[in-house]
Amino acid sequence: MLDPVRVYNEPCDMVMAKDGRPRSFEWRGRQYAVVKVLEDWESTRPWWREPLPGPLDHVVYHYRVRASSTRGQGVIEVRRQYEGWFVTAVLD
């Protein structure tokens, strides 16, 4: 298992595949193509502390992906939640 070397909580602009998984994204002005989804999982936000419009709005979808940019490939964790998509970690 890879350990996070840089942890973030920064928004990104995501393009999703038809199945809702990440296909490509822009982050910090750089374009990334998702080469492969390595892992995915769901979690739930603390709904009792952060009220949102609907019960499904508390589900957070996490993806660990191999992504390619002009600088090469790397493993990046992204998540989708009510507010949008975020880059959460870059792994070695």
Rank of each mutant, 00 (worst) to 15 (best):
P11T: 01
R71E: 07
T70Q: 12
D40T: 14
R21Q: 14
R30S: 14
W85V: 03
L56S: 12
G54S: 15
R23D: 12
L52A: 03
R21K: 10
V59F: 07
W47T: 10
W48N: 10
P46E: 13
Y82N: 07
Y63T: 01
P55E: 14
Q81S: 11
W85L: 05
K18V: 11
K36M: 14
D13Q: 05
F25C: 06
P51M: 09
P55G: 07
V87L: 02
E26V: 14
V59R: 14
Q81G: 14
P51V: 12
E83I: 11
Y82P: 05
E83H: 09
V65G: 00
W41V: 03
V65R: 00
P55L: 11
Q31A: 15
E50A: 02
G74T: 05
R30H: 09
R66D: 04
E26I: 11
V34P: 04
Q81T: 09
D19I: 06
V7G: 00
R23C: 08
G29H: 13
L52T: 05
R28V: 01
E42Q: 15
G84T: 02
V78W: 02
V37F: 02
E39Q: 15
E42F: 13
V15W: 01
R80A: 04
Y82A: 08
Y8C: 05
M1T: 07
G74M: 07
Q73T: 11
R21L: 03
V15E: 06
E83T: 14
V5N: 09
Q81V: 08
P51S: 13
S43N: 11
L52N: 04
Y8L: 13
R49S: 11
L2W: 09
R71L: 01
T70Y: 06
G29Y: 13
Y61F: 15
D40A: 03
V60A: 06
M16Y: 15
P4G: 02
Q31M: 15
F25N: 09
G74Y: 03
A33H: 15
P22I: 09
R66I: 05
C12R: 05
R79V: 14
T44D: 04
H62T: 00
P4A: 09
P46T: 10
Y8W: 12
P53D: 07
V75L: 00
R66M: 11
I76D: 02
Y63R: 00
P51G: 12
R79M: 14
G74E: 12
L2Q: 10
R45A: 11
T44K: 14
E83K: 10
H58D: 09
D92R: 05
